[in-house]
């Protein structure tokens, strides 16, 4: 069986997963610097132990290392996300609509921020990174059902916060 020590295999793993590892840690703690360090640390560990980790385990290995790095160590900061303004004739929108849209995004930001860390991470991995529930379950080391629960609760909480219920 081939292992991760091969340069090509490792490089491929890095290119496919480093961005997600970065986002994953960022969604949890809202700190870009820590997220970047976590990527480095996780892949350095993987490289050091490349002979012991098979390629199919490599993915969950890096998430586990990245996650353990800050376990209980740092306090979550504010998660700041950008909105990719889909360029659809925004100039034709009325000023009232634009204003309302801006307000809504701010509400969503606040709502996301007030979510529990595990719900926010699950929600954003799914919405931004397009990760399937099964993949998120593997990253977090929980069952798919637990991820579905988090997703469900995240949506409910977001709505409650935004609609002011």
């Amino acid at each position: 069986m081939d292992n991760v020590c091969e340069e090509a295999v490792f490089s491929n793993l890095f290119r496919t997963h480093s961005k997600t590892v970065y986002n994953y840690i960022y969604y949890k703690f809202g700190n870009q610097e820590k997220a970047y360090d976590a990527v480095q640390e996780a892949f350095v560990k993987l490289w050091e132990n490349c002979a012991k980790v098979s390629p199919d385990k490599a993915k969950s290995y890096v998430y586990t290392v990245a996650n353990n790095l800050y376990l209980n160590v740092i306090k979550a900061e504010k998660v700041r996300l950008k909105y990719a303004g889909r360029q659809k004739n925004t100039s034709y929108e009325s000023p009232e609509f634009l204003m309302e849209e801006k307000e809504y995004k701010e509400k969503l930001d606040r709502a996301l921020d007030s979510l529990p860390e595990n719900q926010r991470t699950t929600f954003l991995l799914n919405r931004i990174d397009g990760k399937k529930y099964a993949e998120i379950a593997e990253m977090e080391g929980v069952s798919v059902k637990a991820i579905e629960k988090r997703m469900h609760l995240a949506l409910k909480a977001l709505r409650a916060q935004i609609d002011g219920i």
Binding site: S11, F14, R15, S18, Q32, K82, L112, F123
Partner: peptide, 21 residues
């Protein structure tokens, strides 16, 4: 529906893959 529509416009912070490599 609206939450989904708005959250689908969200982007994570920049990540420079080449620099990280």
């Amino acid at each position: 529906q609206r939450i989904l529509a708005a959250s689908d416009q969200l982007e994570a912070p920049e990540f420079d893959l080449d620099m990280a490599w």
